[in-house]
Amino acid sequence: MLKRVYGAFILFAGVMHFLKERNFRYIVPKFLPFRKAIVLVSGVAEIIIGGMLVLNKGTKLAGKLLGWLMIAVWPANMYMAYKEIPLGKIKLSPAVLWGRVAFQIPLIKWAFNISKNAELKN
């Protein structure tokens, strides 16, 4: 059940990559090329992975992919915190921004545990 909630959150985030693409582009470090493409590709990945978790299909693969995706986007959250970039029009305190960075650790662990638990059930 909780993996489906996590999946729904990831699916929603993926859709938001398209609806609010510019907001997501701001948190991609400026030294990276093709920032818009990075946002859109990560959005597609989140939609697919989130959908897999919500539908409870390919959970072992989805958990692994989500764990690696969360690691891949972690630098964007660090960049957002370091530069104190607002979340859309909402200015967050540095404590909240850095809290998001720290919260990524249990989210990564949870993603890999989803995969591990799916493996144990098979």
Rank of each mutant, 00 (worst) to 15 (best):
E46P: 07
P75C: 09
W98E: 03
K83E: 15
K64P: 00
L32S: 01
A111Y: 02
K109T: 11
W110F: 15
Q104A: 14
L65Q: 01
A8E: 04
I105C: 08
P75G: 09
I49F: 15
L53C: 02
A111F: 03
L69P: 05
V41H: 07
G99K: 11
Y6T: 07
G58K: 08
P75Q: 13
K89S: 14
M78E: 03
I38V: 14
V44T: 06
A62M: 09
V41E: 06
I108P: 07
F24G: 05
M70F: 11
M78N: 01
K60I: 07
Y79S: 04
A72W: 10
E21S: 14
I71R: 08
A72L: 14
L53T: 01
L69E: 15
V54S: 12
V39L: 08
A118R: 08
F34V: 04
P86V: 00
I90Q: 10
K91L: 06
G67C: 07
M16P: 02
L53S: 01
F34P: 02
V73K: 08
G7M: 04
V5Y: 08
P86W: 01
V54W: 05
L55Y: 12
K116R: 15
K116L: 13
I108S: 11
P106V: 10
K57Q: 15
L32I: 03
F34C: 02
F31S: 04
G63Y: 01
F103T: 06
I90C: 00
L2A: 10
I38H: 03
T59L: 11
P33V: 01
T59D: 09
W74Q: 10
V73F: 09
A102T: 11
A118G: 07
Y26E: 13
L61D: 00
L55H: 06
Y82G: 01
R100A: 08
K30F: 14
P86S: 00
L65M: 09
L19V: 11
N122K: 11
F31N: 04
Y79L: 03
K60P: 02
M52G: 02
G7K: 08
N23T: 10
V44Q: 06
K91T: 13
I114K: 02
G51A: 02
L55D: 10
G67M: 03
E119F: 12
V73P: 04
I85N: 04
N113T: 10
